[in-house]
């Protein structure tokens, strides 16, 4: 049984085992793919490179030689100034708390509801899935003021936990949709074998389905983490105090109504990107496992 997520990602190219088999007969097409991948990654790395070279330039150097030139000498004042101006460690901690708990709760909710839809095959599941699809295509701009009033009423306004609640719910709509598709193609042989052996639904959930889709859940959690990290509008409206704000909001300090400071902006961008990059580097293995592993082990 083929897994739609898996074939969409392109298992044929990425599977490590297939790669080893093909090593000896690597033809022109493999090299073409390789060259394309290198090219794409260079395009993707370009913004990061821009942030790096401009963050360590003096403002005058930037003015006279433009954004593309290499720095004449290393200048770390922009990074230092931004770090202390916005109290960056505090922003980092806030962002981490929000991203971590959204990843945790978002994936947990997604998994439980996807189990009901994908394995439990509840009545009206296509309708529910359609509803979820609508839920994650609603633009955030239309949600922001209702959320503002709700958060005031439950006294969570101006607290990082309000973001944890909101984004866990918003993202779990997407997570449920994705995991339901994965679980919908879960091999029925395994489930039937478990039922014959007398496993309760809870046991099937915990001991059979969970271990097999765990890598996919980790991948989902990683996505959630990085998405929340970059959220801007809802945190902007819901977090009034600087002490509660997240990394992406702190980047706003670098531009005024009419003025902007390109080197400080680059420094801010660099400091904002680095944590997500580190996070990816740590979790990239679970990420690639998540998308390459099949339902059948």
């Amino acid at each position: 049984m083929s897994n739609p997520v898996e074939s969409a990602i392109g298992r044929k190219i990425w599977s490590p085992n297939r790669g080893k088999q093909n090593l000896k007969r690597r033809g022109v097409s493999s090299w073409l793919v390789f060259a394309t991948v290198i090219l794409i990654s260079l395009v993707w790395l370009f913004p990061l490179w821009m942030a790096l070279v401009n963050a360590i330039k003096t403002p005058l150097d930037f003015l006279h030689h433009g954004p593309l030139a290499l720095p004449r000498h290393i200048f770390l004042k922009s990074i230092q100034a931004f770090w202390t101006d916005v109290n960056f460690p505090q922003k980092l901690l806030n962002s981490f708390i929000v991203s971590f708990f959204v990843a945790l709760f978002g994936v947990a909710i997604s998994f439980l509801s996807a189990f009901a839809i994908g394995i439990g095959r509840i009545r009206g599941r296509y309708f529910v899935l359609g509803l979820f699809m609508v839920a994650f295509t609603v633009p955030q701009e239309s949600l922001v003021f209702p959320l503002y009033h709700l958060s005031q009423q439950v006294h969570l306004y101006n607290s990082v936990w309000v973001l944890v609640v909101i984004f866990s719910v918003i993202y779990s709509a997407f997570g449920t949709y994705m995991l339901s598709v994965v679980l919908g193609s879960f091999p029925t042989e395994i489930l039937e074998a478990a039922k014959v052996d007398g496993a309760s639904p809870r046991r099937i959930l915990w001991n059979i389905v969970l271990p097999i889709v765990r890598p996919t859940m980790f991948a989902l959690g990683t996505f959630f983490f990085v998405w929340v990290w970059n959220e801007y509008l809802i945190p902007l409206v819901l977090l009034a105090d600087n002490a509660n704000q997240t990394v992406s909001l702190s980047l706003g300090v670098t531009s005024g109504q009419y003025t902007s400071d390109p080197t400080t902006q680059a420094a801010a961008a660099l400091l904002g990107i680095i944590p997500s990059v580190i996070f990816y580097l740590i979790f990239q293995r679970t990420l690639s496992r998540g998308v390459t592993l099949g339902a059948v082990k």
Partner: peptide, 8 residues
């Protein structure tokens, strides 16, 4: 004192 941003 809090330094806010014009955008906010």
């Amino acid at each position: 004192f809090q330094l806010k941003t014009w955008a906010q």
